[in-house]
């Protein structure tokens, strides 16, 4: 009996520790990024870092301005979102409100399959199909452009946006829709006059999470968008994103050098961006539940 109580005491303490482990890990991630990144900020101020127009980490003298990288990330993300958000919302409505039965199940598993394809595979497929095709059709010097990255990233963001939007649409009380239908509205009218407003916070949250996913995506974007660290002017030029910079350069950076620390500094920026996006998305999701 005593032994059992002791055992339960220990187990319940372990459960509590596991419960708060997530908090611990978030703090741990931030602390270790900071630990490695802080020495960079001692050398180079935040303003020169974020506002600097030139990223020449290994030339003499080195320049550590990430403005082109930030703009690269923004451009690719913008492109991806323009592609993904309308299609995903339309798809979510089609799946939850229009199609029924077996076709619905097939569509849903198709989207689950898309989510299950590893990012590096989509990157590879992009290289062998999309990139040469873009080069030829648009008559570009290279197919490795922001647009190529945007298209693949858009595809990768879709499962997230679709499934969360679908949840939001399904959470709309049936009475709203039935009320509209009872007043003689068509299903489509009920959808775009009633359902979409009720589901809006959830759909916004879904789009935010999609954006978060795109900004943080690494492999496909590194393989497809050309990696030129210059300030981009159009979607048809090669760009380099924050994530791709870390992934591509960490291998060459000398451990303990300024370049090494600068990549952690980029990591901090990325962490802060995704943190904010997720918090905002969570606020919207929470509002949807009430």
């Amino acid at each position: 009996m005593k032994l059992r109580l002791l055992k339960e005491f220990i187990i319940e303490k372990l459960i509590f520790l596991s419960g708060i482990a997530s908090i611990l890990f978030v703090i741990l991630i931030f602390t270790f990024l900071l630990k490695e990144g802080i020495s960079f900020f001692k050398e180079i101020g935040l303003k020169d870092f974020i506002g600097g127009k030139y990223w020449y980490p290994i030339s003499e003298p080195e320049r550590f301005g990430i403005l082109p990288l930030i703009l690269g990330s923004l451009l690719v993300t913008l492109g991806a979102i323009i592609i993904a958000v309308p299609l995903s919302i339309a798809c979510a409505f089609y799946i939850s409100e229009v199609v029924q039965g077996k076709a619905k199940d097939i569509l849903k598993s198709g989207i689950e399959m898309l989510a299950a394809i590893p990012s590096v595979v989509l990157g590879f497929i992009g290289i062998v199909t999309l990139v040469p095709w873009m080069k030829k059709v648009l008559n570009l010097p290279t197919g490795l452009t922001a647009l190529s990255g945007s298209i693949m990233l858009g595809l990768m963001a879709m499962p997230t946006i679709i499934s969360i939007s679908e949840d939001a649409i399904n959470a709309v009380p049936k009475a709203y829709k039935e009320g509209a239908l009872a007043l003689g509205a068509t299903r489509w009218q009920a959808m775009y006059r009633v359902v979409i407003y009720a589901a809006l916070p959830g759909i916004i949250a879904a789009s935010m999470l999609g954006i978060g996913r795109v900004i943080g995506e690494t492999m496909a974007v590194m393989m497809l968008s050309g990696n030129a660290a210059v300030i981009p002017s159009t979607l048809l030029e090669p760009v380099r994103t924050l994530t791709a910079t870390i992934a591509a350069e960490m291998g060459e950076a000398v451990h303990g050098g300024l370049h090494y620390y600068s990549l952690f500094a980029i990591g901090i920026i990325l962490f802060v961006i995704t943190f904010m996006i997720n918090v905002i998305a969570d606020i919207f999701l929470h509002r949807n539940k009430k």
């Binding site: 990024l33 490695e36 943080g216 990591g267 962490f271 996006i277 918090v279």
Partner: peptide, 18 residues
């Protein structure tokens, strides 16, 4: 809950750095 949401949202390459 907030921590879990954020762990889910951290970029994969940032996990690599960590």
């Amino acid at each position: 809950r907030l921590a879990i949401v954020n762990l889910a949202g951290v970029s994969s390459v940032v996990y690599g750095l960590f």
